[in-house]
Structures are given as C-alpha cells and as structure tokens.
Computed example of a mutant assay.
Amino acid sequence: MIESEPVIENVRKALNDGMEMSVNISMETKISSGKQILSSDIGDEMVMMDINLGKYFSLKGPSGRVWELIDKETSVQSIFDILLEEYDVEAEQCQKELFALLHDMHDAEMIVAI
C-alpha cells in the first residue's frame, strides 16, 4: 500500500541503527502537520520543506495522500479508514505501514502527535 520509497532516509537509517521511536501512536492518536513544513503537490509527488531546518522531503502515492489528510488535525483512525476506502490493501498491512510512516514523520518533526 504505502510504497517503500525512501521517504525520510536519515530517519529510517537512525531507526535501523537502534534509535527508538519517540512517540506511541495508536488509532486514537490525533495527528497534525508541523507548522514549519511548507508543501506543494507536483504531479504524483508531494514535496515538502522544513523552513526552520532547511530539509526537503518527498512523498509519493499513498504516502503523499497521508500528508494531504493530516493538513488539518485528524485521527489516525480517520486516515486509516480513508486509505482502506481508496486503496486496494488489507487492513493489517495498511495499519502496519501507516504506523511506520507516521513514526518516521514524527521523528523527522514533520508531524505532531496530539
């Protein structure tokens, strides 16, 4: 479902090197985009820039769709339900990949868990 492109390579590397995820995300967690992130939809890709850190990020496909859905504060459950409706994916796989993506985004300070 959520393509395995290198969404945030340094965060994935840090996680693989033993850094623990910094937040507990559940289906009830509310998520909001970081205020310091500017984004633009360019074709099939969502390109973002953290204006405070000068870092660029790129999301494609379902990952970009997740970013669109968190433009305003929303629950992980709402994001999950929409992804299940819009993509041909099993619920278990969708939840696993959604949580991994949200943890990556949180650790890169792209989103805030409320």
Rank of each mutant, 00 (worst) to 15 (best):
I2K: 00
S4K: 07
I8T: 14
N10V: 07
N10P: 13
V11G: 05
K13L: 15
K13D: 10
N16S: 12
N16Y: 07
N16T: 06
D17Q: 13
M19N: 04
M21E: 10
S22E: 14
S22K: 12
V23P: 01
N24K: 11
I25W: 08
M27H: 01
M27Y: 01
E28Y: 07
T29Q: 12
T29L: 11
S32D: 05
S32T: 12
S32W: 00
G34V: 00
Q36M: 04
I37G: 05
S40G: 06
D41F: 00
I42R: 02
E45Q: 07
V47D: 10
M48W: 02
M48C: 15
L53D: 15
K55T: 10
Y56V: 13
Y56I: 14
S58E: 11
L59I: 03
L59G: 04
K60T: 10
K60I: 03
G61C: 05
G61D: 14
P62Y: 04
S63D: 12
S63I: 01
S63A: 12
R65C: 05
L69A: 14
L69Q: 15
I70C: 12
I70Y: 09
I70S: 09
D71G: 10
K72S: 15
E73K: 08
E73R: 03
T74E: 08
T74Q: 04
S75G: 09
S75C: 05
V76K: 13
S78D: 11
S78P: 00
I79G: 13
D81L: 05
D81G: 03
L83N: 02
L84C: 09
E85Y: 11
Y87E: 11
D88M: 05
E90T: 11
E90G: 09
A91W: 01
E92I: 06
C94Q: 04
C94T: 04
C94W: 01
A100R: 10
L101R: 10
H103K: 09
D104N: 03
D107T: 11
D107V: 14
M110I: 15
I111D: 01
V112M: 08
V112A: 11
A113Y: 01
A113M: 13
I114G: 15
